[in-house]
Design a protein around this nucleic acid. Structure first.
Lengths: 228, 228
DNA sequence: GCGCTGCTACCTACCGGTCGGTAGGTCTCC
DNA sequence: GGAGACCTACCGACCGGTAGGTAGCAGCGC
């Protein structure tokens, strides 16, 4: 939909409130399991009143997902993409992403994760393209880290999707009142996938054929103590 | 078409065919997005005919999930649970589980993964209990592997859910005709989470440096059953 | 052989309710 | 007085589920 800009001060505000309310319900009950009637009621409106603001149900989901992608890029990607050291970049990214999932601020992000096959056609392609930018970002980081000998060599795609699986699967099992805090989970997973990798000198050329050791590549470690 | 020929169509056989047909549809369209009408038609029956075999829609989903858990236990758990070395157990388990997800034989398993919050009440609790047995199995293996110094020390719960995330997230992105085969993914992920971790005084001399701070405590369990 | 009974496997026809969505009116505020 | 914001009232299609009927078959006494 074409955005008319700031006609009224709270025009966008109202729309965003609808997205957030709808997201809360859809996150709980699923897209197909949530009726427009319920969404309208949660917005303290009738269904016809809701339809004054949105085009149809599918466009509503599309808007929620785009909003979720905006939030993700703001709270994760933008905060880590300038870190020079690829492993530190991945560590910080993993930490931010885990906390984005565990802290329930953005139901929109959870909807993106769960309803991965609900949209079809152009809207599906658009969201998939935004997701792919994140995968590309991770693959690039894994590729750099591998080449610089900062991690054990791994196919960048396998690395990226292993990263994503560990991090994003959390929405299916994490309970805020469980034994483990989200910080502990973040520490554990970062330590597991990106352990301190003290490279040592090796005989063979770079990207050593040995599955066990790799080239030092020296002097790459500059950034320190990236905080979450 | 209704006649399967020969003797009695075996009531269990017919019922299982219904579960598999329903699973195919639900896997494609989601539980809420699939109507009983569609399921009945796919079974070449009317809706009332379908209801002769099942109790209601929720019980159908419950039956599908139990069937999926049976398949999982048969094709993954039962094949690895007797492996003595905990790391080899985890490696073999990961490989079997990945192939179970990538090869689309069991749509029921995918439904278990995707519809993790669709059931409620007792049926939900029952399936969750069956899932928990798998988590316990993984935690135990991680715990043993940590204690025996075969892997970098990690909280067993974090280890188990990292394992599960990497493996089970695959259903959301894997395409059989993609660049990577499922075998390559399995190799990559196994190598990533369970790299050759040289315990002290091991064979293959180069194992020595072992890029870590932690000392692999136990010197026993040098058994390297490179099998699965 | 014959009808009869009991049973499974399905059918047609239908239930009350809800779905996503809309036509057209009213209210309020600039 | 015009433009959004929101309403009542309603649409046809479809939802999960059921009442009640029927075709086919196995077993039965006779």
């Amino acid at each position: 939909m074409t955005n008319t800009g700031g006609r009224k001060p709270d025009e966008g505000e109202r729309y965003r409130a609808i997205l957030e309310t709808a997201a809360r319900l859809i996150c709980d009950r699923g897209y197909e399991g949530t009726s427009m009637q319920e969404i309208a009621a949660a917005c303290r409106m009738t269904k016809a009143g809701l339809y004054h603001h949105i085009q149809n149900k599918e466009q509503l989901l599309f808007a929620i997902m785009n909003y979720g992608m905006d939030l993700f890029e703001e709270q994760v990607l933008s905060r880590v993409q300038d870190i020079a050291n690829p492993v530190e970049r991945l560590r910080a990214c993993m930490r931010h992403n885990i906390l984005l999932v565990t802290r329930g601020w953005s139901k929109e992000v959870i909807i993106i994760l769960h309803e991965h096959a609900t949209l079809t056609g152009e809207t599906r392609a658009f969201i998939d393209a935004r997701k792919k930018k994140y995968v590309d970002f991770l693959e690039e980081a894994f590729s750099q880290a591998s080449q610089q000998g900062l991690i054990r060599p791994v196919d960048p795609t396998v690395g990226a999707f292993s990263f994503l699986g560990m991090v994003l699967w959390i929405y299916k099992w994490f309970k805020p009142d469980g034994r483990l805090t989200d910080e502990q989970i973040a520490d554990g997973m970062v330590g597991m996938l990106f352990p301190p990798f003290a490279a040592v000198g090796d005989t063979a050329g770079q990207a050593g054929p040995s599955p066990l050791r790799m080239v030092p590549s020296v002097s790459a470690t500059g950034t320190d103590s990236e905080d979450a």
